[in-house]
Amino acid sequence: MRIRVLLFAGAKEAMRAGAVDVEVNASSADNTVSVAELMDSLRQTHPPLAKVLPNSLLAVNQEYAEDDVRIKEGDEVALIPPISGG
């Protein structure tokens, strides 16, 4: 399964792109992948993100997601590096 991950701020600069596509091995049972598994795939396939990933969260459909949340095809996924609004 291929998942598009939106990038912002330092992550966008590291990849020089506003999004990356990540190929993941989805569970055969329900064709989903966990947040933790997607993070691992990102780390392995996109080395420039290695520095920012430990302090980042994934947002799934515009909600911060814990490691065990399942991502399915068509979900909106974004990598949220440390925020600094306000």
């Binding site: 911060y64 600094s84 609004g85």
Partner: peptide
């Protein structure tokens, strides 16, 4: 303001 600083996905350079 405290919660926006903790949660809103906004970045400043």
């Amino acid at each position: 303001i405290d919660e926006i600083k903790a949660r809103a996905p906004i970045w400043k350079r």
